[in-house]
Design a protein around this nucleic acid. Sequence first.
RNA 1: GGUCUGGUAGUUCAGUUGGUUAGAAUGCCGGCCUGUCACGCCGGAGGUCGCGAGUUCGAGUCUCGUCCAGACCGCCA
Length: 597
Amino acid sequence: MYRTHTCGELNINHAGKNVTLSGWVQKSRGLGGMTFVDLRDRYGITQLVFNMEKDGELCRKARKLGREYVIQITGNVAERSNKNLKLPTGEIEILVDTLHVLNSSEVPPFTIETETDGGDELRMKYRYLDLRRQVIRKNLELRHRMAMEIRNYLSGENFIEVETPVLIKSTPEGARDFVVPSRMNPGQFYALPQSPQTFKQLLMVAGFDKYFQIVKCFRDEDLRADRQPEFTQIDCEMSFVDRDNLLDAFEGLSNHLFRSIMGVEINDKYPRMPYDEALRKFGSDKPDTRFGMEIKDLKEHTEGKGFQVFDSAEYVSGIVATGCADYSRKQLDELTDYVKKPQIGTRGLVYVKYNEAGTFKSSVDKFYSPDDLQKWADAMGAAPGDLMLILAGETESTRKALGELRLEMGRKLNLMDPKAYRPLWVVDFPLLEWDEETNRYYAMHHPFTRPYEEDLELFDSDPGKVRAKAYDLVINGVEIGGGSIRIHNEDLQQKMFDNLGFTREEAAKQFGFLMGAFRYGAPPHGGIAFGFDRWVALFAGLDSIRDTIAFPKNNAGRDVMIDSPSSIAEEQLEELFLEVKKEELKKIETRTSGRKQ
RNA sequence: GGUCUGGUAGUUCAGUUGGUUAGAAUGCCGGCCUGUCACGCCGGAGGUCGCGAGUUCGAGUCUCGUCCAGACCGCCA
């Protein structure tokens, strides 16, 4: 028997017991006459003691142990004379009788501790060592507990988890597909699912009126800290529901997770904020509502005073930074630099200091009188001591920039309480989105999203104004999930494809199976999918989803541990009737040979 | 596709105006140490300054290219 107990469970109540433990050597501290070894496993750390007087040979053997050796010991649980109350096992230690080295270890390239000295790159390359660290393990344990709670809760609500295929069909809408060549069907390819979208709708047609699945999805797009090429969704679909039934149902799931995992009770119903309002007030379709600082329109108060920048701008708005009237020139310059970064992309920033004394100091004093500025302050709800920050330009981009500036000020002023959770639903997204490059409309959510009946007539006059029965769950400025009520009849679906510029033939070829299914009694239905990795990251307090995933990929989509993707053998290519373009292959070769070992 | 930041000891980083032998901490190795738990003290080893060109009497430092990593924009729901 390798062990009678784990390294996390022994305490003062086990004193006197004879035990066997197995684990990794976290650290050993030799003191000449005696040696202490911290033995670690998944469950915790237990201190082992070796005494030179008691057993010199054994103690000398213990002193030779290196970090991360795997050992097995037997010994007696004893109360410590010097207790360490920082550890759950800190009141006891093991007086070791026998020591057996199960496996030695090379010196690890970084320290296996909560505060590791390893950088990201190294940690990813040796992920199996990184996963030994408590902080990382704890994230995976959180992820596991959340998955269990989700399954239990949804199962209790009569949802059934159904697996859907991974080798499916490429579709033209949405993200790029990962494709898989088919050996048995030369020249043809499967695609990996961007989500099980069509299958869950078919399950609704099949009468599984409440479906869910915790499922891997794949998108071949450029990555970010919160985006991986393969990621996990909590994919859900329900029949016989309208939008509000569905939002209520999944508020239930969200509240359950907050309660069971975080011990947080969310008493209020989640606000349902129209997309337009989110953009107008927060400059974002995923507003962080932990703090106010809403965007206020100033256009009408700025006109006709000879300030060309504002007069010629389509949009002039600002935010109020409470208590920041004493900002120095340097601080204001920093903010100006921030909004002028190419990623934000504005030409400049106008500030108005509403001084404690009631006077104004602004970068546009030349054009606007104190009375004018007072009107601005009134319109924006600014009080003496506050700083008004104003941007002008084209509506859409300037709103987004103000939204970014608002978040930056929120960070600077510590307005984002990491312990506060402000979930809300953003609703009424536009159904369609115009794309300048291809000169056509695209489905903003996806082509199966149901428009509002009362907006249907706009299809012909102003398709961009048609609102969709689509919604996102946003928590603290993070988009946690999104979904929609679906189209369930063939005519409307066809109309949608028409507006997306699909010919009948194309639509039939790509989605014929779904349209066909709709002819056989499709129930009204709708669904939602949550980004599981992001939800775990939110609960774990992480900005990146990488450490919620056991084996993540880097920002180029590479797994630096197994070094994938990689080229494949010529025979494999031939079997698949594939040929790699030579000039492309050269590029790959220089990239691979140039990589650090 | 683009912007920005970084790459120096096993690791995390510092390195001044371009100037003698490239430093610190930590880890590692050796010695001392019987109550440590971030143990302590003493000593030691450890460097292709990512790679390649260029400028210069002289490059870790300046220029160009390139590779790698990270963040962001585009992209993606």
